[in-house]
């Protein structure tokens, strides 16, 4: 089979199984959760559905790995390569922690960039709206704002900080429709550009990251016994490692590092974005997938031992979701 056919086959596996196949699996799991009461009685339907979806994904993933091994002719020895090397397994644990940290550092930088741009964008329309408002409304708003500033801000802040805060409070006192500001709005209007406000925004970003397929793992960790939750998560992410490093890079080794690594990384990152509810939520698995795809791809290309990378992947995931 030529290199192009092999790349096309792997791409087809990603689209057919990871997108269409999992869509059907998840739909069936949700219907099963709604129609039956399998599991402890205190589980809600949504929790039951999340656990079922993760179990279905894990079981089907094992079948996909077996099918790929049969199709590609890669021996089952690849599944346990590196298992007898405790030093490499220990390095895999540290690698997983480091990869998660590097991925989250990049995500944090992107979030902070987005927040900084958003803060500037929020302050500009407020100023334009204030300029378009009628003079009477503006005078009323200024009066209300001065009262608020006098009551709330004066005396609480000193020196240069006070000048900056009150100035910004005056400008931002008019609301989006130019209505007079209620008492106390001088302080609230400041928070749009206040670094202290980023805690809430950061939390909302992190909240979005817990949706999509990540929700399956979070729910399982909450409602299942720890061994069962870690087992389900382990099967799922270990299968991903076997597909995208063990099978893909071994099967494409003859095509050279550029084709093999590019195919593995692109398909792996693409798969991470499936079933996430928004691009903000998808950013976390995508950035983590880029870090892991590059690092694991280079390591496996140099030393084709898959079990230490499976350990790193599992540790990455467990450290990310707990």
């Amino acid at each position: 089979m030529s290199t192009a056919w092999r790349v096309a086959t792997l791409a087809a596996v990603v689209v057919v199984y990871y997108w269409f196949g999992k869509t059907l699996l998840f739909r069936g799991a949700r219907r099963l959760a709604a129609a039956t009461r399998i599991g402890p009685s205190h589980w809600g339907t949504a929790q039951r559905a999340d656990v079922f979806e993760l179990a279905a994904a894990g079981a089907s993933h094992v079948l996909v790995v077996a099918a790929l091994l049969a199709v590609t002719g890669i021996g089952p020895g690849m599944l346990v390569s590196g298992l007898a090397r405790p030093d490499l397994l220990a390095l895999g644990v540290l690698l997983g922690v480091g990869e998660l940290a590097l991925g989250s550092l990049l995500c944090r930088a992107l979030i902070e960039l987005s927040l900084a741009r958003g803060a500037r964008a929020r302050t500009r329309p407020a100023r334009r709206t204030a300029g378009a408002a009628g003079a009477g409304e503006r005078r009323a708003a200024d009066s209300a704002n001065r009262r608020a500033a006098g009551a709330g801000v004066r005396g609480a802040l000193l020196g240069a900080r006070t000048r900056g805060v009150v100035g910004r409070g005056d400008r931002g006192a008019l609301g989006p429709v130019g209505a007079p500001a209620p008492p106390g709005s001088a302080r609230r209007s400041r928070t749009a550009a206040d670094p202290a406000d980023q805690g809430q925004s950061l939390r909302s970003w992190l909240g979005r990251s817990r949706g999509g397929w990540i929700r399956h793992h979070l729910t399982s960790l909450k409602v299942l016994p720890l061994w069962a939750a870690l087992g389900l998560t382990g099967v799922q992410v270990a299968s991903e490692e076997l597909v995208f490093r063990g099978v893909a890079l071994t099967w494409l080794r003859e095509a050279g590092p550029l084709v093999a690594l590019t195919t593995s990384i692109v398909l792996f990152v693409l798969m991470q974005a499936f079933f996430m509810s928004s691009w903000q939520g998808a950013m976390f698995p995508v950035v983590g997938g880029i870090v892991m795809g590059v690092v694991h791809g280079l390591v496996f290309w140099t030393t084709p031992l898959v079990v230490p990378l499976v350990v790193a992947h599992v540790v990455f995931f467990v450290f990310a979701v707990i």
Binding site: L94, V295, V299, T303
Partner: peptide, 18 residues
């Protein structure tokens, strides 16, 4: 051992504060 150790040192070193 070298590739895995190198990768571990690089990611841990780069993201030590994180």
């Amino acid at each position: 051992t070298r590739p895995l150790l190198t990768a571990t040192v690089v990611v841990l070193g780069l993201a030590s504060m994180t």
